[in-house]
């Protein structure tokens, strides 16, 4: 005998909290994307550096954070930072952990983009009297962005979905909403389903935004 019947009625009172949770997930994901890109750019450039210690430092960073579970890093950020005297909100520790973890992946994506720029591009820039920074800014980065734009789509989705782990350190995101609403209402199936759909929609919206921005940025679509 099967007594299960699908019903969303019990969930309705929790939809207001879901809205807040979506905003938290969105804020966490977008902030991580921005910060990990910045960190990734710095470390990608360091990995190409002429100085061996800088290269080692960057490689050590990438290899450490790429090979440790996000959950462990999040626990570190949440439980260990106060021990060394850094008081942070769950959101802040979550952002630190997410940025360190995904920064390592971004480093590798950006590095691949940097390697793809032919040496002749640097030489053309140098021959015109540009500084290293001008070459990076005006010649190399625009080409890197173009190269990594498609693989970046995957990474954005991984970041949004990965942010669900921050619910383990008391960030009130969609995953946290799912757990509390499920256990409050005993309507687990329905809450899980809603959470899954909301994540899927969120990922699609971000990815479509990326695609449309891409069309505006690269109209020639070479």
């Amino acid at each position: 005998m099967n007594s299960f019947s699908f019903s969303l009625r019990a969930i309705v009172p929790y939809l207001g909290e879901l809205q807040t949770a979506v905003l938290v997930t969105l804020a966490m994901s977008l902030a991580t994307i921005g910060l990990s890109l910045a960190i990734g750019l710095v470390f990608a450039v360091l990995r190409q550096s002429r100085s061996a210690p800088l290269r080692w430092f960057a490689t050590a960073y990438v290899e450490f954070f790429r090979n440790t579970p996000l959950l462990v890093i999040l626990y570190f950020a949440y439980f260990m930072m106060p021990v060394i005297g850094l008081r942070m909100s769950p959101f802040q520790s979550g952002l630190v952990g997410m940025t360190l973890h995904f920064g390592a992946y971004m480093t590798e994506i950006l590095r691949a983009g940097l390697i793809a720029v032919p040496h002749g591009q640097y030489e053309a820039g140098h021959s015109q009297g540009m500084t290293n920074f001008q070459i990076l800014r005006h010649i190399v980065l625009p080409q890197v962005i173009r190269t990594i734009y498609a693989p970046l789509g995957n990474q954005l989705i991984t970041i949004i979905l990965g942010s669900s782990l921050t619910s383990a350190i008391a960030v009130n995101d969609i995953a946290a909403w799912m757990q509390t609403t499920g256990s409050d209402t005993f309507r687990y199936f329905e809450t899980f389903l809603i959470a899954a759909i909301v994540y899927a929609v969120l990922c699609q919206v971000i990815n479509l935004t990326r695609i449309y921005i891409g069309r505006a940025l690269f109209p020639d679509n070479r």
Binding site: P118, G120, Q121, E123, A124, H126, S127, Q128, G129, M130, T131, I139, Q143, R222
Partner: peptide, 18 residues
Amino acid sequence: IDVRKRVGMIFQQFNLYP
């Protein structure tokens, strides 16, 4: 850089910015 500003270079592979 002061020298390069005063010398124009044309490469075998063009090296235009794509």
